[in-house]
Amino acid sequence: MYSKLILERWARRLMVLGALLGWSASAAAASAILPFGADTWSELQRSSARPMAVVFSTTDCTHCPGVIDGLAAVIKKSRSGVRLVVVVMDGAGQEDALRQDRHYRNAHVLYAFDGDALALRFKVNPDWRGLTPYVALLPASGAAQFHTGAPPPDALRSFLLR
């Protein structure tokens, strides 16, 4: 039982790394939806695929598509190699609907969250009060910066130029 859990955990890690590193075309990458579990945030933080912009989104969030589209466009324009990761907090079991939402296709990696949202929020940032979109800018090294809604231009500039 324990070894099975270990294997599952490593399989998930490899899946995450593979998805992040294997990205080449955004439209193709977004068709794969990965489960975002209790350890995925830690794995992203440790990932060699940083820098990345992680957008925590919900399906009923009317501001999320604009932020995802905006970030995707800016990242593409910047040619910075930053990966856009979208985590749909209420996406578990709705993968077909997510695949058909054009905004999510902007993501290099798309996750459906599966777990305790309160615990995830606390782990990501205890100050995150559940508002969406919630954006974590993970530079190549160093701590993440968090923004509710679209990151301010200055913060985005420093992140992309870093």
Binding site: C61, T62, G66, K77, R102
Partner: peptide
């Protein structure tokens, strides 16, 4: 250089939003 970058980024962001609105508005699939 920095100002140019910010301006280009903001124009890009605005263009992304405009494209979205042209299809029905901010966040309204």
């Amino acid at each position: 250089m920095v100002r140019t970058f910010v301006a280009a980024m903001m124009l890009t962001w605005a263009a992304a939003l405009t494209a979205q609105e042209g299809h029905g508005g901010h966040g309204t699939d």
